[in-house]
Nucleic acid binder design. Structure first.
Lengths: 182, 182
DNA sequence: CCCGGTTACTTGAAGTTTGAAGTAACGGGT
DNA sequence: ACCCGTTACTTCAAACTTCAAGTAACCGGG
């Protein structure tokens, strides 16, 4: 199927401790390898953050993400916007909203300009608690990347930005123009 | 709606079509921004692949990943190894295995050397079908990254490798040496 | 005004994933 | 041979997620 190898001096170590990347083999093409490596890195960080959020605060990652989104928007967000930002389905946001409202993190209001829309925002208690968690959350990430050379980190950030710009233009369902600066 | 702008030379477009990255802001530290960008890229690719697998083959991403893992190991894999490679919980692998066995993709055998262990492998039908899907799957990725400059792609791949190497050493629960060539 | 298309959200069923607790098997030390 | 700690897997409840179908509200023409 894939008649190639010859491209790695670093032979893949087999399965132990390699995670999803172990799926990549010399016969795979670079596109697949890039995707698997991307997924692998992302999953590893995610697992750590998820576990810590649960241990330290008894909160789940989806809820934290939801709250993080709201924290940046003191005036609240429409559920629709939240759905897009979190990159999940509408039904998911509906359920998360119910739960977060029930637990006192978030409050709902109807958009006066469009009665279809619901606007959610943090309660003052929710904001206070979230900021407390967020501060620690950030330190976890700093610690995770600590020792990862700054130059490489910045370069990685930059390259991910390019990839993001390359991927984003697909499915411009709403308004908003894409600038393509570089 | 968003009473703030002015913080980067590349101004963030607001919320529209920005996904998870919209969470990053000028006040966030670089560690958080890197994580969010990584997650954003990963999620975007994942959504596309997931949707196509469902449309074209009526299969889910977790099942495809499971099969991909097995395809590379004609002699089969222990569930434990699979759990580590897929980076999911054991319970999840147990359930996936049940389903894939029930649907004829996979067959189970008890490891003669360790009666606790189950070894799973593709059925011949499963292998044939998987290879058919995998060929198309690879083309989707090629197409996704098509137009993304080769130099940037290779650089990104390289930097992700560094990040991966930086993250991996946490929790070396099993054997297996890490080579660290470069 | 009203009709038809679109958008915003909700509902419900099916599926995935996790974390914690439980069972069984291994293996080294005594 | 018997413990004891570890490992492999299973089970189960709870949480998350998706998809598809449904309801309600908007909006632009006729």
């Amino acid at each position: 199927m894939s008649p190639r190898r010859h491209f790695a001096q670093v032979h893949v170590v087999d399965d132990e401790r390699l995670g999803q990347e172990a799926r990549a083999q010399s016969t795979d093409h670079s596109a697949v390898r890039l995707w698997l490596r991307l997924l692998s890195c992302s999953t590893q960080v995610e697992q750590v953050i998820r576990a810590r959020l649960r241990e330290r605060f008894g909160i789940t990652l989806p809820r934290f993400d939801y709250l993080a989104q709201l924290e940046r928007h003191p005036d609240g967000l429409r559920l629709n916007t939240l759905t897009r930002n979190l990159m999940v389905t509408g039904g998911n946001v509906t359920l998360l909203t119910e739960q977060l409202v029930a637990d006192g993190w978030v409050e709902r209001a109807t958009d006066p300009a469009d009665r279809r829309s619901t606007i959610v925002s943090l309660t003052s208690w929710g904001r206070r608690e979230f900021l407390r968690m967020a501060a620690e959350h950030e330190q976890w990430l700093v610690a995770l990347f600590c020792g990862f050379d700054d130059v490489h980190r910045d370069a990685l950030y930059e390259h991910l930005g390019r990839l993001r710009a390359h991927l984003a233009p697909r499915g411009p369902s709403t308004s908003s123009r894409q600038e393509r600066a570089s």
